[in-house]
Measured scan of single mutants.
Amino acid sequence: KTVKFDGLQFDFDNPEKALKFALEVAKQKGAEVHIHGDEIKIE
C-alpha cells in the first residue's frame, strides 16, 4: 500500500501498518483518510 500526503509518498509492504500510519498522520493533521485500491490519501 502507498500512503500519500503533502506531496510525499510512503510505501508499505504491510497494509495494516500503512493504514495505522495514515490514521495517525490524519489525526495529527486534522485530515481525513481516503482509500483508493492500493493507495491511501490523507486530505
Rank of each mutant, 00 (worst) to 15 (best):
K1P: 10
T2H: 06
T2Q: 05
T2R: 07
V3H: 03
V3T: 03
V3Q: 02
K4I: 13
K4N: 07
F5D: 03
F5L: 06
D6R: 01
D6P: 04
D6F: 04
G7D: 07
G7E: 06
L8E: 06
L8W: 06
L8Y: 09
Q9V: 13
Q9K: 09
F10G: 03
F10W: 12
D11F: 14
D11Q: 11
D11M: 12
F12V: 01
F12D: 03
F12T: 02
F12L: 04
F12W: 02
D13Q: 06
D13F: 03
N14Q: 05
N14Y: 00
N14D: 14
N14E: 09
P15M: 14
P15W: 15
E16F: 04
E16N: 04
E16S: 05
E16T: 07
K17S: 13
K17I: 12
K17R: 08
A18L: 06
A18V: 01
A18Q: 01
L19A: 00
L19C: 14
L19T: 00
K20E: 14
K20T: 03
K20D: 15
F21Q: 14
F21M: 13
F21E: 15
A22T: 00
A22H: 02
A22G: 03
L23V: 11
L23E: 15
E24G: 01
E24N: 00
V25Y: 06
V25K: 00
V25D: 06
V25E: 07
A26H: 00
A26W: 00
A26C: 14
A26I: 04
K27M: 12
K27L: 11
K27N: 08
Q28N: 09
Q28R: 11
Q28V: 09
Q28G: 06
Q28M: 10
Q28W: 03
Q28S: 10
K29V: 13
K29T: 13
K29N: 11
G30Y: 05
G30E: 06
A31P: 01
E32S: 13
E32Y: 13
V33P: 02
V33E: 02
H34G: 05
H34V: 12
H34K: 10
H34F: 11
H34E: 07
H34T: 10
I35R: 03
I35H: 05
I35L: 09
I35Q: 05
H36Y: 13
G37F: 10
E39P: 01
E39T: 12
E39S: 08
I40D: 01
I40S: 03
K41P: 02
K41R: 14
E43C: 15
E43P: 05
E43H: 10
E43N: 08
